[in-house]
Design a protein around this nucleic acid. Structure first.
Length: 1039
RNA sequence: GGUCGAUUAGCUCAGUGGUAGAGCACUGCAUUGACAUUGCAGGGGUCACUAGUUCGAACCUAGUAUCGACCACCA
């Protein structure tokens, strides 16, 4: 006999270990079986399980367990992502916290990376163990890490192939720069947030004190303002970037400024004697209706300005260093400004390198933080009188003339933040590596259009198209150390000097070797530096003597010399570059392995929408590119975001984060509070969080177990809607597990037969035929729903069958048989009971793997696991309609009698005599067959057929028969009349609705015949019921 | 500005043109019978609003209102 209750803690980890040790999670590699692969979205090595992971992996596990039971060859590919920035951040923080004065830079690259690997071995990957707690049936023996050597091979090959095709290139571009991590990041890693900002208005005086007539007109062309100006007004939210302005732009159609287009104006900041002049140009970009209509162009610090500057050949002056401080390098300002002015006046040519070297930050601002510099610039301009002034709005109502104040608008502005660092992102002009995403996107778009890959729910394809069709070059280089190092080496180029090959010292002559491995690179370099004339000669300078004369390219000392002049690119690749290869790199690519052939393409990718761009799009592009045009997965199931029970995003500072493991293991209130209040970004919120937590969860959480959590997530996983997770719901599904457990105890007490072979074909009792039919209906519904990714429907079909059909009805119906002396009936029912429960375990197993496996294990001597059983219905089904109708009648009869009893307040313990009036032969037969059970469940002491009802009895109608409760003495005739009137009223409403509809000729003519027939049938049934009830009412009323 | 979505019972949500549903909460009854982590019975809805299409609309169309998400943005 099983325990009184199921204790998840006592079994979950034990069961999991047994599965794992028995190899249950490994693919069968049965060649006759259909392959089925799911690639886990590799969690960050720094990660720990949150509700989103719990949902994501529950869904994947349901799919995998279900398909395994359906006989497929399943690989659920697990692994982790090395998560470049996140991991480097964690380890750097740890270094800082450990007190020593070592940081990444003082340690050096190799030592630091070693440290990160150490950290990974010790503390990384807790999330994988948490996934095991959830029951995830991943193929752990094939666990991959995106930074492993085999992954690196794939990365280098992909990089090299794309490079050789020109789809990867290096370029100087304006990129998003994270001043905290001092690396470029992709635009996806930038989070735009609305913050309070200011817009300042400044006057840029015209060069040489020139003036012009500034005219403003209204829509009708009437002049509203006309004045002489010696300046152009510019609005900016970032005054510190004025130092790098290259021009002022106005719209070509803007009449206000046409007199001064082509002239120079002065940037009103910096030492007066060295003010820079910049040209006033036209460009389509400025909006004449916004601000003053004139825009300062700072190509090196703004993405829009960058485009304008590129179009107009405007120099882009970089102002900041990699930490976001105003540059302090280069020549003194005075000298640089003079050059800049000659450039602005067109007197001096410039090139990129020259511009890059020019530091146009005036000496007094050099080395300042960019935000300090902003304040200083504003103060200086205002002090000098170049701020645009307005009448102080505070004095608007006063009669005296209002004093003038600088025009500073308080404004909500969108500001870019690094999603990891949280600091303001600075657009910076730097050399970076890019992927030509536009080219790769084309077939990836087509693959979705053609249906080779489908999004579920399908409307996500709009999001995908939208992004893919407007895709920007993907910046893949990161100035970090933790990651795949870019497989590119540089060396001095070879030039011909007077017939001799010599190494060049010009950076423009650098030679680039992109190779899949170090050895390959050396071979390439040898080929480059060595030919029939021998090794390249070195004439002078740094490389002198590097290549000694030798005729043998294989001469190892020569090769060592060679590598001394080559250096590898310092950067690493964006983490998502390696994740983008996940579907094939994990299967051994570029080797043509069995795994690759079997499990590419995968079946379904399960993910949340927030990484469609980061990950799904990249896998599509790279998968199609490197796997001969084959998409990496057929379906992309986009699941919901998990929120708290009130629909709020779970966040630490709200204190509403629910840790999945806490729901599985349970947690005391104090521990829960402690967990929620430590490590808050805003520690001042701690008391508030504590109060809310104690109020909401005064007793912490029970240990609900993994099954309850999983079932909750599945039941709430509807298509296209966020999940608001409530702990009450989890408790409800824990109760569901208990229900199943107790049903099994009941079966054991009644000697149900578990673990024997069984076929429903030979059943005789209609109640057993009925439950067998219901079981197959349930499992078919579950299958259909899972295939269609309707996890909520699947869960509720299984829930409803188990609780409402099996426990509430079948177990009750079986009791009289199990307690009877009819050995044959009893035997059959014992067999059915065991079998139905076992099949129910199977049907619930994808959702609740632990409790069902424990029940399987403890109900019979087993040689195999539940998770290895075959899904019901796969080898034949069973459906007995006649038994179904019969049992429907039994259930209906019992329910109606119970309902009437309750309505007329018959005490629950009292037994009542019942007779059926007007019953046909079939009903008579049914009564005979089910008399015991009806009497027991409806608490009757008599159930007979009769010709007429005794006066004053209580009646209800089931089909053709009137059910008569002979309890005249227990009830009040007046109340009974009222009860019947109420029912008649309800019936009358429904009947008149139907009559009206059927009376409508258009309905009868146009509606489908089966609908019309159905409504006619229903009408006549209702009418029959009404007639019998009103007859009963008349009898009573006549008394 | 673009895209997508939501609005149904007190709460959280299912419901793809034909009788409005579930869980929780609520009300009444029932405790040595597998299970109180329970059972039985019940109350509770203008399906946001307006107009249309249709024999018939929670569902389709158009619009309105409110809320939300994502993307892109005016210096």
């Amino acid at each position: 006999m099983i325990d009184q209750r199921f204790d998840p803690k006592a079994h979950e980890q034990r069961i999991y270990q047994r599965w794992e040790e028995s190899g249950c999670f490994r693919p069968s590699m049965d060649t006759s079986a259909e392959p089925y692969a799911i690639m886990i979205p590799p969690p960050n090595v720094t990660g720990s399980l949150h509700m989103g992971h719990a949902l994501n992996n529950t869904v994947q596990d349901i799919l995998c367990r279900f398909e395994r039971m359906r006989g497929k060859n399943v690989r659920w590919q697990p692994g982790m992502d090395h998560a470049g920035i996140a991991t480097q951040m964690v380890v750097e923080r740890q270094l800082a916290a450990s007190g020593g004065n070592q940081d990444r830079r003082s340690m050096g690259r190799d030592a630091f990376i070693e440290k990160v690997w150490e950290w990974k071995e010790e503390s990384g990957g807790t999330i994988l163990n948490q996934l095991k707690r959830l029951g995830a049936s991943c193929d752990w023996e094939n666990t991959k890490f995106t930074l492993d050597e085999d992954m690196n091979k794939a990365v280098n090959k992909v990089f090299g192939d794309l490079y050789n095709e020109g789809l990867i290139y290096r370029a100087k571009r304006l990129v998003n720069w994270d001043p905290h991590f001092q690396t470029a990041i992709s635009n996806l890693e930038v989070e735009n947030k609305e913050v309070d900002g200011h817009m300042w208005h400044f006057k840029y005086p015209l060069a040489g004190g020139e003036t012009y007539t500034y005219v403003e007109k209204d829509e009708d062309g009437n002049v509203t303002l006309e004045e002489t100006r010696d300046y152009i007004s510019i609005a900016t939210t970032r005054p510190e970037t004025m130092l790098g302005d290259g021009a002022v732009a106005v719209h070509p159609s803007d009449q206000r400024y046409s007199p001064i287009v082509g002239k120079l104006c002065e940037i009103p900041v910096g030492p007066k004697e060295h003010r820079r002049l910049i040209p006033i140009i036209t460009d389509e970009y400025p909006d004449p209706d916004f601000g003053s209509g004139a825009v300062k162009i700072t190509g090196a610090h703004d993405f829009n300005d960058y485009q304008v500057a590129k179009r107009g050949g405007i120099p882009m002056y970089a102002l900041m260093d990699e930490k976001g401080f105003m540059r302090a390098d280069g020549e003194a300002y005075a000298a640089v400004a003079a050059v800049a002015q000659r450039i602005a006046e067109g007197q001096e040519d410039f090139d990129e390198a020259k511009i890059a070297a020019m530091n146009l930050v005036p000496d007094l601002y050099r080395g300042m933080d960019r935000f300090e510099a902003r304040k200083a610039v504003v103060a200086d301009i205002t002090a000098e009188g170049n701020a645009v002034m307005i009448a102080d709005p505070k004095h608007e109502d006063e009669e005296t003339e209002a004093p003038l104040v600088p025009l500073v608008e308080n404004k909500k502005i969108m500001q870019p933040f690094g999603d990891r660092s949280g600091v303001v992102i600075e657009p910076m002009l730097t050399d970076q590596w890019f992927v030509d995403a536009e080219t790769l996107a084309k077939p990836a778009i087509e693959a979705v259009r053609s249906g080779a890959t489908k999004f579920v729910p399908e409307n996500w394809d709009r999001t995908y198209y939208n992004w893919m069709e407007n895709i920007e070059p993907w910046c893949i280089s990161r100035q970090l150390w933790w990651g795949h190092r870019i497989p590119v080496w540089y060396g001095p180029g070879v030039i011909d000097i007077e017939g001799d090959k010599r190494l060049s010292y010009e950076s423009s002559d650098l030679v680039v070797f992109c190779a899949e491995s170090y050895d390959d690179m050396v071979n390439m370099a040898v080929q480059y530096y060595f030919d029939e004339r021998g090794w390249t000669k070195v004439s002078e300078g740094d490389y002198e003597g590097v290549f000694t004369v030798s005729a043998d390219p294989q001469d190892t000392s020569q090769r060592d010399d060679l590598t001394a002049v080559l250096w590898q690119d310092e950067d690493v690749l964006d983490t998502w570059f390696s994740s983008g290869l996940w579907p094939f790199s994990t299967q051994g690519w570029p080797e043509q392995t069995e795994g690759l052939k079997t499990f590419y393409p995968g079946a379904t990718l399960v993910t949340a929408f927030d990484i469609i761009f980061f990950w799904v799009a990249r896998m599509m592009m790279l998968g199609i590119k490197f796997m001969d045009g084959e998409v990496p997965f057929k379906d992309v199931y986009i699941h919901a975001i998990v929120r708290d029970e009130n629909g709020k995003k779970m966040s630490k500072s709200e204190g509403n984060v629910i840790d999945p493991v806490d729901l599985i293991d349970g947690i005391e209130a104090d521990a829960l509070v402690a967990k929620r209040t430590t490590g808050l970004r805003q520690p001042e919120k701690a008391p508030q969080v504590e109060k809310a937590t104690r109020k909401r969860y005064p007793n912490g959480f029970d240990a609900y177990g993994a099954d309850a959590l999983r079932f909750t997530l599945a039941a709430m996983a509807t298509k296209g809607r966020d999940i608001n997770l409530s702990v009450e719901r989890v408790a409800g599904y824990r109760n569901f597990g208990t229900k199943l457990w107790n049903a099994t105890r009941f079966a054991q007490m009644n000697e149900a037969k578990f673990g024997v072979s069984f076929s429903p074909q030979s059943l005789e009792l209609s109640v057993n035929k009925w439950i067998a039919s219901e079981l197959y209906k349930c499992t078919a519904a579950v299958s259909e729903a899972i295939e269609d990714y309707r996890f909520n429907d699947a869960a509720s079909a299984a829930y409803h069958f188990t609780w409402d059909v099996l426990c509430d009805w079948y177990l009750e119906l079986s009791k009289p048989i199990l307690n009877s002396d009819d050995a044959k009936a009893k035997n059959e029912t014992q067999a059915v009971l065991g079998w139905v429960l076992e099949q129910t375990f199977v049907a619930l197993h994808p959702f609740m793997p632990f409790i069902t496996e424990v029940l399987w294990e403890q109900t019979a001597e087993r040689s195999d696991f539940l998770m290895q059983q075959t899904w019901p219905g796969l080898n034949g089904s069973f459906d007995d309609k006649k038994a179904g109708e019969e049992l429907d009648w039994v259930l209906k009869t019992i329910s109606q009698i119970r309902s009437v009893r309750s309505d007329v307040n018959v005490p629950a313990g009292a037994k009542v005599p019942v007779s059926l009036v007007g019953a046909n032969d079939e009903t008579g037969r049914r009564v005979a067959a089910h008399r015991d059970v009806i009497m027991r469940m409806a608490r009757l002491d008599k159930l007979d057929m009769a010709d007429a009802a005794p006066a004053g009895s209580v009646k209800t109608v089931v089909d053709e028969a009137t059910v008569v409760l002979e309890i005249a003495d227990l009830i009040d005739a007046g109340e009974e009349v009222a009860r019947l009137d109420k029912q008649l009223g309800k019936l009358g409403g429904e009947i008149s609705g139907l009559e009206k509809r059927l009376g409508n000729e258009a309905f009868v003519a146009k509606a489908p015949p089966e609908v019309v027939a159905e409504q006619r049938t229903r009408l006549s049934e209702l009418q029959g019921t009404r007639d019998k009830l009103s007859q009963a009412r008349e009898q009573l009323a006549a008394l």
